[in-house]
Structure formats: C-alpha cells, structure tokens
Design a protein around this nucleic acid. Structure first.
Lengths: 333, 333
DNA sequence: AATATCTGGACAAAAGTGAGACAAAGTAGC
DNA sequence: GCTACTTTGTCTCACTTTTGTCCAGATATT
C-alpha cells in the first residue's frame, strides 16, 4: 500500500469474510483463494479460527485486478500492484482494449442453420408469450436469450427481428395493441437494465444517446446504449424526444465524444431535418453524430450532406466507435 | 440501540409474538431464537409468562440482518450492530450485488424531524446528481433510498417529492430539459426493475395498470405497479397511452381483479372523460377501476359519478386493494 | 384439547481451510 | 502450424467452523 493509497483513504481494517468479497468482486471464492496462494494477490488477516478477513482496500484491489485481467494482463504482472498502479494500468487498457477484444466483430461468424433455427424458435416463443400476456414467461425467454448469445448478437439477431415481427403483427391486426404495448413496456424495462453493467471505472469515454423531437420510440436508442456499454463506453441516455439544443448542451456538459440518435417513427416527420441540421451545427467539429433506425433511409440525402454518420449495422457502428476512440488516443498522446 | 435510532421514529415498544416476527422477516422461529441465543442478535422483552415480545425496531433489524447475511456478512460481525450501521453496511453491498430479494414490510411510520430532514437531504442530493448528469451517483442514491425505507414510503416520501421538484425546476427553467429527460429515463428503468423482484408463485391476483390514451407519462403507473407487487398482487403493466378498449380486453384476458390508471399530464385532455366512461362501461361490475395522479382533481365529478375509485394516498390505495382481496377470498371459500 | 412457545441440547448441512489434481486456454519456440 | 510449456479457473478430499433445523419435555395460550 503506497502513500497515495493512504491519502485516498480506503479502509484497510480487516473485517470482511471471503463470501462477501466474492459477492462484491464477482470472483468465486475458490478463485480468490487460488490467487492468494499462487501470486499473493492479497494477504488477508485471519480471525482467531483461521477465517480470512479482508479490508475494503483488498476488495477494491481484487475488483481492479479482475478488470485488468479481463483487459488481457497477466496475473503475475499485476498481482502485487498497489491500487494506484492498477488504476493507471487500467486506464490505458480502456483505450487499447479495442484492438484485442475482437469478440465477434472482426470475425463475423457465420451462424449455422441450427443456430438460426434456434433463434427463430426463441422469437416465436416470445411472440407466443406476449399474446398470452405472460410477462413472466416473456422475461424468462429474454434472460435465456441473453445467456445464449453475446449481447450484440442478441440485440441484432433476436430483439431487432422480434420488434419487426411485433410491428408487423400489430399493423396487420393479428396482435392486439394491448399486447404490443405490454411487450414494449417490458422491453423498455429489460433494455434499461442492460445498460449499466458491473465494470464501471469512471474513466470511460461518454456518448450521448437519445431520439430527437417528435420521435417517441426509444427502444432503438436503448439498444444502442446497451451496445456501446459492452465496448467500454459510458452511455449518457437522455430518453426520447429531446430537442436539438438540449442534446448539444448535454454533450458539452458531460464532455461526450460522440452523439447518437435513433430515428424510427414517424419517418416523415418534418421536424427530423430541422432538428438534425440544428444539432449538427451546434456540435463541436470533433464530436461525430451517428444516426440509426428505420427512418434513416428517408433522409439519407440530408444525412450525407451534413456529414452525419449512419452505420448500416450494429457491427459497423461498433467499428466506427472503435476507430473514434483509437484516433482520440493518438491525438492525446 | 443508538441515539439516532431512538430518534428515528421506529417504534420500540415490545408487542409482537415471535411467530409474527418470523412471518414478517422471512426467518424461521427456531432461527430467531438460535440467533438470540448464540449472538444476542436481539434481546426481546418478555411477557409475564416468559414469552418473547418484539418491537418494530427488532423486526426491522432482523430483516436487515437477514439481507446482510445474504450479502456475505458473518453473523458474528453484524449481530450487535444498531439499525443505522446495518443500513450503511447494506447500502455498500447494494452498490455491487445486482440482485437481492426484498422481504416486504408494512410499518406505519411516524416520521420525526430528523427523518424528514434526512429525506430532504436525499432528495437534494438526487437533484444535484441530476444537474451534474451523474447517472451513476443518481442510481446509487436511489438504491440507498430503497434500503433505508420500505418500498411504499420510499415511493411516497422520496420519489413522489422528487418528481414534484423535478417538474417545478424544469418549469421554472432552473433545470434544463435535458436533465429532466435524463432523470425521467433513469427513473423509468429503475421503477421498471422494481416491479418483478418479488417472488412469483403464479397464484397472485392480477391488476392491470396503465395510462389512458393521451397520457404519456408513465412513472406514476410504474410506481403503482411496484406498490401493488409488495402486497402480493401481480401487476400487468401495459405501458402508457392505452386505448380504453384495449385495457378492458386485457383485463378480461388475464382475468384481472382490478384496473388501475394513472392520470397526470395534460390534466385537461378532452380524451380523459371519454376514455374513462368507455372503459368503465366495458369493465365487468366486479372489477373496480382505480385512478390516481395529479390530474384526478380535474375530473372528480365524473369520477365519482361513474363509481371510479380514487384513493387519496398510496396507503388508502393499498387499503382498498387489501379489502378487495379479502372480499374475494371470502366469496371463494 | 389442540396449538404455540420456552429452554437446552443434539445433529446435520453449509461454508471455510489447505493441499493438490486436472483440463482448457494461452504462449513460446521451432 | 505444431508440439511443449505455462497460466489459470475449477474441482476434489479430508478436516474444522459456522449456521440452520429438529427434538423433548415443560409451560402457556386459545
């Protein structure tokens, strides 16, 4: 423990049992012990019956070490680092991680027929649960889907098609408005909860996400928020129907590095061009504006004229964000 | 028990038998006695025949100790903690552990000056976090508030005033629209997640909750949904802006025992009377219709003419629901 | 009379401990 | 690209501590 750690005043008095540490760090009990045995990651005090007793300091270190490991560090190298060194290492990672954690972005895996079938079945089952007004079942299916797929492919392969079907079925009258309402409300909750996941270090770059005036459908924006959060961005979500001036002001206030809008319905709202133009003119040059959603097609001319980015897929969107982050890293250094 | 506990309004007069304590805390009778024997977790008064008599204070402590244990604390360490220390320990945990079940309690609270002050401070801190666009802090405060209060009083004493202030500040221009938007979006997620934390057995009576056509603000309806779930109802939440026909049809499809609407803004929407009349006429006689929210006042004449219930407070609302359920229980048996 | 609570003790399940084994994943050298 | 080696997460086993449940006989409540 270094001087600067002492100053930052994290409690070092030993008092927490291993189970609590496991809960708070997301590590397993076994793993915490293994790390201690092999690398002396921590050296907890003991109770009079040999139970390990950890301090808040230990917990914070373990949490950071887990994150650093996730970012590709070797345990041997980081095991003995004090807190501040870990934080430093981590803040560099955040930038570089994009090069390494190429999950499924660079390798656009070709789904097997089996997989496609399974997805279709899941979507069918969801539609059935919705018609039956069985919220519990619907939620269960959503959770299962999340486990089976990575978040990006879950959004792209399950949720997006589901929303599509839902829209079709409602328009054609084969599904009641009430069912569609219920499903939308539930999805709103579900997607909202996805957004803020565990690893939050406070140094993530921010991106403002919302929909412009007149656009009340927010599911697209929420999907974007969930998506960027897996790549280490912190989404600042403003909800739907936000005036251009307000969006620009928010971007400034929280020093966002990008702004992202979802455009869906109504696609021909005359306010869309106005708001886009206004927003783009108020944003600093180095803050790119992204748009996505079904209504983008109706405004493609304007969009390209204004220099707004409109990635064609989630994958492309992530790619653009990644580049953006790398560029800014270079400019900084 | 510390000074601040004494002041903080929880009744310490001994009166509850052990059985009731077990029911309210979710612990077994044996366990409560074992904890007392081994760790002096509580020290209940005794009747003249040696029966244990617990106070509300004891119950609350036992409930929190159960939660703390679940979070990984060891009994030895938390057994003697006073209430406020337990709450502090728990609110630290909450931040990390994502899910914890929420044994509900209803206790009639008699707020002291200190408590009112604490609540006002919480609300202020929330408003501050919102202005700073610090979503993380805002969320943290919400989670803490949840632990410090029972859900009903959290909704009534913290969230409702917060929304009020938020509205005032936005109208008066002292808060940006963007801030209000962000806060609303975050609250939407938070309240949505509250709804189905409770254990679900499949035999709960259902209540359809929504807002009528033209009413887009859904936070009130979500608060109602969270509230009823505490009392063992299953809310069927349809989201905002649902046509009367659809509401009625939903009530039929899921055989709801009640329907509940939130009316807020705009209060003078001409569609409100139409929709209320239509909905009431389509609902079966034995399905009561509840309305709540700030716009109720503007339609009180119609509401009483139609025989719609409009409880004046959350407490009254719960009371009505309770009666309703008891009545139906009797009819069934 | 049936039900609930009390005390104290006994017992068993759960969780923690140390040492070690093992397989999957990653890395290095060729 | 392919072994050989290292790293790392998980599991097992025998043993101890902690914690939840059950029981028996006595007393109290309804």
């Amino acid at each position: 423990m270094t001087i600067s750690d002492q100053i930052s005043s994290i409690d070092t008095s030993p008092r927490h049992p291993i189970r609590l540490v496991a809960n708070r760090t997301g590590l397993t009990v076994d793993l915490i012990r293994a790390w201690e045995r092999r690398y002396q990651v921590v050296d907890p005090a003991r109770s009079d019956t040999q139970r390990r007793l950890y301090s808040d300091y230990d917990i914070e270190r373990l949490r950071l070490i887990r994150l650093a490991k996730q970012g590709g560090h070797r345990l041997v190298n980081i095991a003995r680092m004090p807190l501040d060194a870990l934080r430093d290492a981590l803040s560099e990672d955040i930038h570089f991680s994009s090069h390494h954690d190429n999950g499924e972005v660079q390798r656009p895996e070709r789904p097997s027929l089996l997989q496609i079938d399974a997805r279709a079945q899941t979507i069918d089952a969801m539609l059935f649960a919705i018609q039956a007004m069985d919220q519990h079942r619907f939620d269960q299916l959503l959770q299962q889907g999340m486990v089976r797929e990575s978040l990006p492919s879950f959004l792209e392969e399950i949720l997006a098609p589901l929303l599509q079907e839902l829209g079709n079925a409602t328009r054609s009258g084969s599904m009641r408005i009430a069912h569609e309402h219920m499903a939308t409300a539930h999805l709103r909750t579900f997607l909202g909860a996805l957004r803020y996941r565990e690893s939050f270090t406070g140094i993530e770059p921010k991106v403002v996400i919302t929909t412009p005036t007149g656009q009340f459908h927010e599911l697209g924006a929420l999907m974007a928020a969930a998506l960027v959060s897996v790549d280490g961005w912190l989404p600042v979500y403003l909800g739907p129907n936000t005036p251009a001036d307000e969006i620009a002001a928010s971007a400034v206030q929280c020093s966002a590095r990008a702004v992202c809008l979802s455009l869906t319905y109504p696609a021909d709202d005359p306010r869309i061009p106005t708001e886009l133009t206004r927003l783009k003119s108020q944003l600093a040059q180095n803050i790119p504006l992204f748009v996505g959603g079904s209504a983008v097609a109706a405004h493609s001319a304007l969009i390209s004229r204004l220099g707004i980015k409109s990635p064609a897929s989630f994958r492309e969107f992530r790619e653009e964000l990644r580049k953006l982050r790398d560029d800014q890293l270079e400019t900084n250094s």
